[in-house]
Design a protein around this nucleic acid. Structure first.
Lengths: 107, 107
DNA sequence: GCAATCGATAACTCGCTGGCTATTTGACAA
DNA sequence: TTGTCAAATAGCCAGCGAGTTATCGATTGC
């Protein structure tokens, strides 16, 4: 429905991209070359993925000489966590309403 | 990396599909016709989306006469929650390691 | 200055996916 | 039995997105 979810879910939907993000979470700061070495795809592909992740706010880049380091931006996962909580909340409140109804019928 | 994440993330990546799932969480049990009325796409499209959601374990179907009711399976979100927690965990443990290192260097 | 390296961009291909219409299947009503 | 309605399936098409190779820009070492 809203924009942030859209970009976030789409960014995390691709397995290669998710693997890159996981690696950045696990091992922290990485150069593009280091990420490419384990990504199983070409360097341009990795660059493109990093672009998508950056656009989603999931990573930051830091230029250092001719190297570019990327790092995970953990806070960007907040909307995803909020969304799951919201879904759980809907579920719960429907359950509560049912309980109320049964209680009112019982009395 | 692992299978459950893959199917789950992909299933939730599509906005139409996510809207259907959200609606089922909000309002509970719905027939295909009811979902189609608000989905903004054709009935076959909705059926296909429901198939994907079902395959991901996100919904259940219940046949009642010639109607089919779908409902959200909230438990299916668990792997998603686990994943975010895991990412946060990696982050935290890296931070802890850094702290330890600094502490050792300090003494 | 020159060569080499890192990363991004360009330009292209190709498969997948989400959408559609038409049709089939199955359950009920008449 | 026949007609009708709900939902799924079939078959098709268009667009997107992830991958490739080739190239460009920038930076650094010699």
């Amino acid at each position: 429905m809203s924009q942030p979810h859209e970009i976030l879910f789409r960014a995390l939907a691709d397995p290669t991209r998710r693997a890159i993000f996981e690696r950045l979470c696990r091992d922290g700061d990485q150069t593009v070359a280091a990420l490419t070495a384990r990504a199983g795809v070409s360097q341009p592909a990795v660059s493109k993925h990093l672009g998508v992740l950056k656009h989603a706010g999931l990573v930051r880049d830091r230029h250092e000489g001719r190297n570019t380091h990327y790092s995970a931006e953990l806070g960007a996962l907040a909307p995803l966590i909020d969304w799951t909580n919201q879904m759980a909340g809907f579920w719960q409140s429907r359950f509560d309403n049912l309980e109320d109804l049964l209680k009112r019928m019982d009395q």
